[in-house]
Computed example of a mutant assay.
Amino acid sequence: MNDNQLLRYSRHILLPNIGYEGQEQLVNSHALIIGAGGLGAPVAMYMAAGGTGKLTICDFDTVDMTNLQRQIIHTTASVGINKAESAQQALQALNPEVEVITIREKSTEATMSALVHNADVVIDCSDNFATRYALNRICLAEKKPLVSGAAIGFEGQITVFDFRQENSPCYHCLYPDTGADDALRCAENGVFAPLVGMIGTTQAAEAMKLLMGIGQSLQGRLLLLDVLSMEWRSLRLQRDPTCSVCQPS
């Protein structure tokens, strides 16, 4: 790390669990963020502020006025601009030490596989089941940790599938693929603005912990948040012995 980085990340380095070695590991890491919307915004901002060396951000959508209520990485001036490009501009202003790569086209499973292969951790901030199932299959094949989050209305959830561990459950264990993409979307159902920040920052924390090799991840646990009652619940998540994705044939 250079002198600017030592100063910028000094409050991380002061933490015994992180120290110089942990921060240097983060600086040399590469995170793939799928989606630059409500969840992807706080994920990208905290990953960049905290010093993740390289961020690849994928989003083919453009910023809409209705996004600004919760997608805090974008501004009014960003309306009409591609979300990945808008995020890149904000992150470079926030921390020029971080390399930000943008993918502005809709990814195929083949192109997504190449992106996952080159990343150290994958953070799923998408809003549809098709993308979530594809990322699950790819991360399992590539043995890359996947940080999965979702938020709608006043409720959110987050978990980690660490496919570096042989006993890890997968997203298909939690939500078996029925072939129908009936995911709830904010445009149709609404979402409480701070909720996506709470889930997104938790995703960022889990991803950074995984990259630095500190603490205990949410592997094998599903956190559920109800903002109206401000209650977090933790559920055990085990591998489905009949799962068609993660169980050997």
Rank of each mutant, 00 (worst) to 15 (best):
P96K: 11
L6F: 05
F129W: 09
A180V: 15
D120P: 00
L222F: 07
I33K: 01
G50R: 02
I199T: 07
L211V: 06
C246R: 01
G215K: 07
A31V: 14
A119E: 03
L14G: 06
C246G: 06
M230L: 10
H12S: 04
V160K: 04
A205N: 09
P42L: 09
S229W: 07
V227S: 14
T131M: 05
R236C: 09
S234M: 12
V100C: 05
I138Y: 05
V245H: 02
G220M: 07
A119L: 04
S107I: 10
Q69C: 03
G51H: 04
K54I: 09
Q88A: 15
L195R: 04
Y9V: 08
L174S: 08
E142L: 11
G53H: 00
L115P: 00
A151F: 13
W232G: 02
T111R: 10
I33H: 00
Q92T: 14
Q157G: 04
L55K: 04
A207Y: 00
A84T: 12
E188M: 14
A183W: 06
Q25N: 09
T52P: 02
L32N: 06
F161I: 03
D127W: 02
Q92G: 01
G213H: 04
R236E: 13
E166V: 10
E24V: 10
G197Q: 03
H12N: 14
E109G: 11
L211D: 04
E166M: 05
P241D: 12
A134S: 15
G40V: 02
D177K: 15
I72P: 00
S10L: 00
E188Y: 07
V98P: 04
D177Y: 12
W232I: 13
Q88Y: 03
L224V: 11
A87M: 03
S78Y: 00
T108E: 02
K54D: 02
D3R: 14
H30E: 01
A36F: 03
L225A: 02
R233L: 11
R8M: 01
